[in-house]
């Protein structure tokens, strides 16, 4: 009897785990823009992202959880060291709450590719992704005024758990 119960328990666990799978989506060409000039303090750069789930053939109804696994920012050559003190990255859509998903403070010097610290708690990203369009918002804290237009390129990797 004990053996049967143990086996049944094992099979249930196996099937419930088997039903979930994790897919990674990489967005390697997220271009965050804002028109200059930029002044000392926080400046916001945006990029709209369209139809991510649809493009990757993922049905939003099958999605259990979405988390940002990594976020890398590529600094343009026009930026000198020490110009930007910190970054924070948010996701927002018209019908869901804005979520802060990553940041870095201070920015390490001498690097062109900056890996942001990803938030441990990321509730509600599903809702943002389920819309056809959402916005990535990058707040960059400038240490001084800067005239030249800048565009940041971001590489974002999301892990999507589906059933």
């Amino acid at each position: 009897m004990k053996k049967i119960l143990f086996l049944s328990f094992f099979v249930i666990i196996l099937f419930s785990c088997k039903n979930q799978s994790v897919t990674s989506i990489e967005l390697n060409d997220v271009n965050l823009t804002a028109e200059g000039p930029y002044f000392e303090g926080p400046n916001s750069f945006q990029s709209k992202i369209l139809n991510t789930l649809k493009i990757n053939n993922i049905n939003p109804e099958n999605v259990d959880k979405i988390v940002l696994a990594s976020a890398i920012l590529i600094l343009p050559d026009s930026i000198e060291a020490g110009l930007i003190q910190d970054f924070s990255l948010q996701l927002v859509s018209n019908s869901s709450e804005m979520k802060k998903v990553a940041f870095i403070n201070p920015i390490p010097t001498g690097k062109k590719e900056i890996e942001l610290t990803v938030a441990q708690e990321q509730e509600g990203i599903n809702e943002i992704f389920s819309k056809e369009e959402f916005t990535t918002l990058l707040d960059a804290n400038f240490s001084k005024d800067f005239e030249t237009n800048i565009q940041f390129k971001a590489k974002l990797k999301f892990n999507i758990t589906t059933h």
Binding site: A34, E35, E40, G41
Partner: peptide
């Protein structure tokens, strides 16, 4: 207003 805000940002 978003675009306008970014052009006119001057936190000092």
């Amino acid at each position: 207003s978003t675009k306008k805000v970014e052009e006119e940002e001057d936190y000092s």
